[in-house]
Amino acid sequence: MRALRTASLLALTTATLLAAAGVATAHGTRWQQVGHTTAENRISGEGLTTLRLPGHAPELVYRNGATIPQPLKDEGWGHVGDPDSLRGYVFDVYQDTRTPTPSTKMYLVTRPDGTTTEFVHPLLADEPAANANAQVAATPDGQWLVSGPLGEIDRLYVSPTPFLNPRGPKVAGDLPVAARIHLDHHIRSAQGCDFTGATTLICATSDPYNDLYPTNLQLLQIDLARPLTGRDVTARVHEIGQVPLVSTCTGTFTPEGVDYDAGVLRVEVVPPSPCNTVTDVYSFERR
Rank of each mutant, 00 (worst) to 15 (best):
E285G: 12
V281M: 14
P214L: 08
G173P: 03
P162S: 07
G28Q: 11
A21R: 15
S189V: 06
A20W: 09
V93A: 03
T196G: 00
A172R: 04
P169E: 12
L9N: 02
R42W: 12
T13E: 12
S147Y: 11
N165F: 10
H121M: 06
L220D: 01
A132N: 14
A39W: 08
F91C: 02
N165P: 13
A20V: 05
T252E: 13
G114K: 10
V34P: 04
P149N: 08
P102G: 01
C193G: 03
D211W: 09
T29F: 07
Q221D: 01
R231E: 14
L124F: 04
F284D: 05
A26T: 05
S189R: 08
L12W: 10
W144S: 02
F163P: 03
E118Q: 15
H182A: 07
A198S: 14
A66W: 13
T25I: 13
T29L: 15
Q191G: 00
D259T: 11
C203E: 00
M106L: 15
Y209P: 00
V243A: 06
G22T: 06
R155W: 00
A24P: 03
P169F: 08
Y209A: 13
P166N: 11
K73W: 08
L12P: 05
L53P: 10
T110Q: 15
L220T: 00
A235M: 10
V93Q: 06
R63P: 03
P69D: 02
E40N: 15
Y62H: 12
T277D: 14
C203W: 04
Y260K: 07
Y209C: 00
P149K: 01
R155A: 13
T110P: 05
R52G: 01
A3C: 11
V281W: 11
D223S: 13
Q242C: 03
L60T: 15
A20R: 13
H56P: 01
D84M: 04
T110G: 05
G151Y: 04
Y62S: 00
N41E: 09
Y89T: 10
L86N: 12
R188P: 00
L220G: 00
R226T: 12
R63W: 12
K170V: 15
D232S: 05
P227I: 06
R287K: 13
D261V: 03
G88A: 08
C203Y: 02
N276C: 03
L156Q: 08
T29I: 12
T116C: 10
G22Y: 11
L108D: 10
L72F: 11
Y213V: 06
A66D: 14
N276S: 14
N210E: 09
G173W: 07
Q32T: 12
D184C: 06
P274Y: 06
A21L: 13
L123D: 00
A7Y: 08
Y260E: 05
H121W: 03
D280W: 10
D194L: 04
Q218L: 00
T117D: 14
A24V: 13
M106N: 07
T248P: 01
P227T: 07
L53W: 12
T16K: 11
R52D: 14
R286N: 08
P100K: 05
T116H: 11
V233Y: 04
T29Y: 09
A15D: 14
P140I: 07
D74W: 01
R98V: 09
T99D: 04
G197N: 12
V278I: 12
D259L: 04
L4M: 14
I240Y: 15
R63E: 15
D96W: 04
G241D: 13
V278S: 09
D232M: 02
R2N: 10
P176A: 09
K170M: 09
A21M: 08
L224H: 01
